[in-house]
Amino acid sequence: MIREEDATGREHRDPGIVSLPEEPVDEPRANRAMFVLDGFDLYFGRAHILKGITLEIPSNQVTAIIGPSGCGKSSLLRSLNRMNDRVPGMRVEGKVLFEGDDVYGQSVDPVTLRRRVGMVFQRPTPFPMSIFDNVAYGPRLHGLAKRSELDRVVESSLRDAGLWDVVKDTLRKPATALSGGEQQRLCIARTLAVDPEVILLDEPTSALDPSATTRIEELLQRLAERYTIVIVTHNMQQAARVSEDTAFLLSGELVEFGPTDKIFRAPDDRRTEDYVTGRFG
């Protein structure tokens, strides 16, 4: 679906890229909150990395996290699927709820959580195995062994990642032979193969050229129909292009969170305005 202007009036989007699910006009978003953070603090040893973060990440849309280098964007993202657990001296206060469950509570198993909350990293990270085995990695891990089933999952994941036509004849070739952009889409396919509900992306295009970047952005727009997407980006235009909501972090504090449009056009906070207009950061 291609529109010049969506329900929230974001006519600045490039119409070639936009493809969004229908939203009811003049009504608050129907999306439920996927993640709820309430007074969330993160410490690495004595360093206080995230300070009292409170926000709700809505389902089935793209939410962007922006902010200057070292402000805690990655740390925030990695708090959502407990990828910070391995950091020595990691400690949290406050709450992160994922569909109502306390992510850092007793009842949540991080391994299970990560199957539901997938992650794609800054640099493509293909495993040293074939393209097929890369995509089949997660399903195999979780007990899927039947060849026909694996074939089906691998194909549909690669199709969803827009990579099927490129690799369908070379599935047995090493994944490391793909180009950077293709590798990144492979990593997205690999994440999709686990059938997560959320996909977290940490600067997924910063190692890619502009055309590969555009392809990933288009892909994210399509995926947002079915998945909740949270993307960390250094690229302000990218945040404006792909996201509905944007969070602005500064020194571990959430300065402002709201519709992307508002953050870029009429932010409430002076610091947000300075950042998005390029006065610092």
Binding site: N81, M83, R86, V111, T112, R114, R115, G118, M119, F121, R123, T125, F127, Y137, G138, L141, H142, C187, R190, T191, V194
Partner: peptide, 14 residues
């Protein structure tokens, strides 16, 4: 690389 380890962990691997 730590990244490879992270990538596997993020797919729900122990």
């Amino acid at each position: 690389s730590e990244e490879l380890r992270d990538a596997s962990t993020a797919l729900g691997a122990t």
